[in-house]
Design a protein around this nucleic acid. Structure first.
Length: 490
RNA sequence: GCCCCCAUCGUCUAGCCAGGUUAGGACAUCGCCCUUUCAAGGCGACGGCAGCGGUUCAAAUCCGCUUGGGGGCGCCA
């Protein structure tokens, strides 16, 4: 009895997929999956001057990375294609023509300059501007005269009298007085459709049942509803989800750092963590203490009724925490691959470094470090000593640890002790160092701390014995020697 | 300026629709425990119903106003 749920995500390819778009896509996807529906991806590339193929590529890549796979759309096709608006221009013209025939749309020859001038004049007089319908009743002769002048008309939709109400699934009835709307352009003078028009034609032809989009579209909705009515199309259900804001409570944008999905991917965030975090922005299930949700759990529980109505502030701290949770549970093998991608991108390794041994090393580094980082790239920010011999000594560590009286002696002893130690693994190293400390009447910590600073330059890091094992005997000895030379120089 | 939407800890939110809770959880912050450091983990603390008025025995919850925030007012999407 109930028709199949069909939802869509319709980005315009004018840049990266940002977090707000990703979350809109996620809610659409979750809704479709929950109800066994179809998730359509449509590319709104009618703005030729701003749309790029590169952007299309990045958006598809971002969605795939997040695991928000579409059932119909670019590269997968479907029965209602094409899924690029730039390939559907004939449809917009055909449908615009219908409105023109029915007298529900009319040609307007006003130029942008003329419009601007009139608008400014009205506003200067304290009025609020709506298109003044100067071209509403143009005769065929007048239109012909304009054409001879070389003017190219736009097509405007004639807004009827009255008020327009639509049901928002989150808010209930929302009503706009049609007087607030003006006769908006549906076809530009170059023949391209405008957003509101193309959107309605496509959503209708693609049999979209639920339009889930950002609440910045609320004020577009009455215009679109009027178009559905003008065409006699069945109106889909609307659900306007809240925006994601930056710390300063304005719409998330470039100014807030990096709102793109690819940025987070490149920093070594895990897609399941991003999905989980984004899902929990504006949406909660009410289960106490439960913050971590798998994709399946999200789908199972998802409901638009539980989506909040107010904007949400993006909180990097919480994303970091959540990503840390996923990192700790992740396979080191997988994390090593992410790490290697980052190293490559940052030029820290070249193709010839990428040996199986290096991969194994990265895996061991990740096994050690995944418990104490919040995103993979953090390793290069806080533990560069894994990948260079030229790490610096943290001045504080030098001051409070290395300048202790017995340190040179302890380091020399350690050097001798480790030199012939076999096997060079954490358990053996630990045993050796602890017994040596005991023999000398020292606390193990008196060995551990200076050694850590010696081999890493830092006071903090993974367990020392594991660290030494992963670094390997050769590097550990060289680093101890280096530190001794450093101390001798004062 | 006009129109629309929204309002619970610093942040994400539960509770609101079907009034009665010590207003719950998570992140962050702080303290203690554990511990070779860090992290993780455990325990605890801090911290909120924007304001005013109304309805009611009773209001975070229902109503109104104010204030605050967001969005829109393109031949952008």
């Amino acid at each position: 009895m109930r028709e199949t749920v069909r939802v869509r995500f319709a980005p315009s390819p004018t840049g990266f997929l940002h977090l707000g778009g990703a979350r809109t896509a996620l809610f659409n996807w979750a809704f479709a999956r929950k109800y066994g529906g179809v998730f359509v991806l449509r590319i709104e590339d009618t703005d030729l001057s701003r749309s790029t193929e590169e952007s299309v590529r990045v958006i598809l890549e971002s969605l795939r990375w997040l695991g928000l796979l579409w059932d119909e759309g670019p590269e997968v096709g479907g029965p209602y294609g094409p899924y690029f608006q730039s390939q559907r221009l004939h449809l917009y013209r055909e449908y615009a023509e219908k409105l023109l025939q029915k007298g529900l749309a009319y040609e307007c020859f006003c130029t942008p300059e003329e419009l601007k001038e009139r608008k400014e004049r009205v506003i200067a007089q304290g009025g609020s501007w709506r298109y003044d319908r100067r071209c509403l009743h143009l005769s065929a002769r007048e239109r012909e005269a304009f054409r001879r002048e070389g003017r190219k008309p736009v097509l405007r939709f004639r807004i009827p009298e009255g008020a327009t109400t639509f049901v928002d699934m989150l808010r209930g009835d929302v009503t706009f007085d049609n007087g607030e709307l003006d006769d908006f352009v549906i076809l530009k003078s170059d023949g391209m459709p405008t957003y509101n028009f193309a959107c309605v034609v496509d959503d209708a032809l693609m049999r979209i049942t639920h339009v889930i989009r950002g609440d910045d579209h609320i004020s577009n909705t009455p215009r679109q509803v009027l178009l559905y009515e003008a065409f006699g199309f069945p109106c889909p259900q609307f659900a306007h989800i809240p925006m994601i804001l930056g710390k300063d409570r304005t719409r998330l944008s470039k100014r807030h750092g990096s709102p793109s999905v690819t940025y987070y991917r490149d920093m070594g965030y895990l897609p399941e963590a991003m999905v989980n975090y984004l899902a929990r922005l504006s949406w909660a299930t009410g289960e106490e203490e439960k913050e971590i949700f798998t994709r399946e759990e999200i789908i199972e529980r998802f409901s638009l009724e539980q989506v909040t109505k107010h904007a949400a502030v993006f909180d990097l701290d919480k994303l970091n925490w959540m990503n840390g949770v996923y990192l700790r549970a992740a396979d080191p093998e997988r994390l090593a691959e992410i790490l290697i991608d980052i190293l490559k991108r940052q030029g820290k390794v070249t193709e010839k470094d990428l040996t199986p041994e290096f991969s194994a090393y990265c895996r061991r580094v990740m096994a050690l470090m995944r418990d104490r980082i919040r995103y993979v790239a953090q390793i290069l920010e806080e533990a560069e000593y894994f990948f260079t011999e030229y790490y610096e000594y943290d001045p504080q560590a030098v001051e409070s640890v290395l300048f202790e009286e017995k340190v040179p002696e302890i380091l020399r002893t350690s050097y001798e002790l480790l030199k012939d130690l076999e096997p060079f693994d954490a358990a053996t190293i630990e045993k050796a160092i602890r017994s040596e400390a005991e023999r000398r009447g020292l606390k193990a910590a008196q060995f551990i701390h200076p050694l850590r600073v010696a081999v890493s330059g830092k006071k903090v890091g993974p367990g020392l014995f594991e660290l030494l094992e992963v670094l390997g005997k050769e590097r550990v000895l060289a680093r101890i020697a280096r530190t001794l030379r450093f101390l001798e120089k004062g």
